[in-house]
């Protein structure tokens, strides 16, 4: 493994994403900072929406970063870099589904107490329901949902993106994102109630 271009750099950890993009265009070695900043987030994001095994996620992730590098000049400040890179990860994951011609049945989700709180307040669930809700039940309900609904919930409640950022990731208008979210909430409540019965 040669390491010519991965020499120690000036410390750019405090730089903004946009600055790192500019620095990477000056020297490709600086790309390492962007990878380091996003590899974990994107790894879990792909894991949550795809359910692919880790080796495959790493392959997808590598493709994501190569694509990001090739398209660095396409990024502009109209949207956040995080939305842009999530959008590429979203597309690469969908391409991976197409290549495999199948999707895993279960995605890899974990919901802790904080997650239960976020989802119950975000979904406007009645108190008696949210009090009894457990992380496992939420995960079981999410697993039963359509991919498009599950993904939007992952982006909102797991990745913490707002509607504009989600719009930039899934490349749909904000109105569509809002309506998808409403339908996702309704479907979640319906499936959650069915599971409870």
């Amino acid at each position: 493994m040669t390491n010519n271009n991965f020499s120690p750099l000036a410390d750019h950890n405090e730089e903004s994403d946009e600055s790192l993009v500019r620095l990477t265009l000056e020297s490709q070695a600086n790309f390492a900072y962007l990878i380091r900043r996003y590899k974990d987030k994107l790894f879990y994001y792909i894991k949550r929406i795809s359910g692919f095994p880790e080796e495959e996620i790493e392959d997808i992730l590598q493709d994501v970063f190569l694509k990001v590098y090739k398209n660095l000049n396409s990024f502009n400040d109209d949207s956040k870099f995080s939305s842009w890179i999530y959008g590429i990860a979203h597309n690469e994951t969908i391409s991976a589904y197409r290549k495999k011609r199948s999707r895993p049945q279960k995605t890899d989700l974990e919901v802790d107490d904080d997650g239960v709180e976020k989802i119950s307040s975000g979904f406007d669930l009645e108190k008696e329901i949210s009090d009894k809700m457990t992380g496992e039940e939420i995960v079981a309900t999410l697993q039963e949902m359509e991919d498009k609904y599950r993904e939007i919930i992952v982006l909102k409640f797991f990745e913490g993106l707002d509607y504009k950022e989600i719009s930039d990731v899934i490349k749909k208008p904000m109105g569509t994102v809002a309506s998808l979210m409403n339908r996702a909430k309704k479907e979640f409540k319906k499936k959650f109630d069915q599971n409870k019965l």
């Binding site: 790309f31 390492a32 790894f43 880790e54 590098y69």
Partner: peptide, 26 residues
């Protein structure tokens, strides 16, 4: 809400190396 999986190690090295070896340019 993070999982406790092993993270992809040295991914940045692999990617930077691939960029160099395959002479990938933006």
């Amino acid at each position: 809400m993070e999982n406790k999986n092993d993270l992809p190690a040295d991914l940045e090295k692999e990617v930077i190396e691939k960029i160099a070896v395959e002479k990938i340019k933006p």
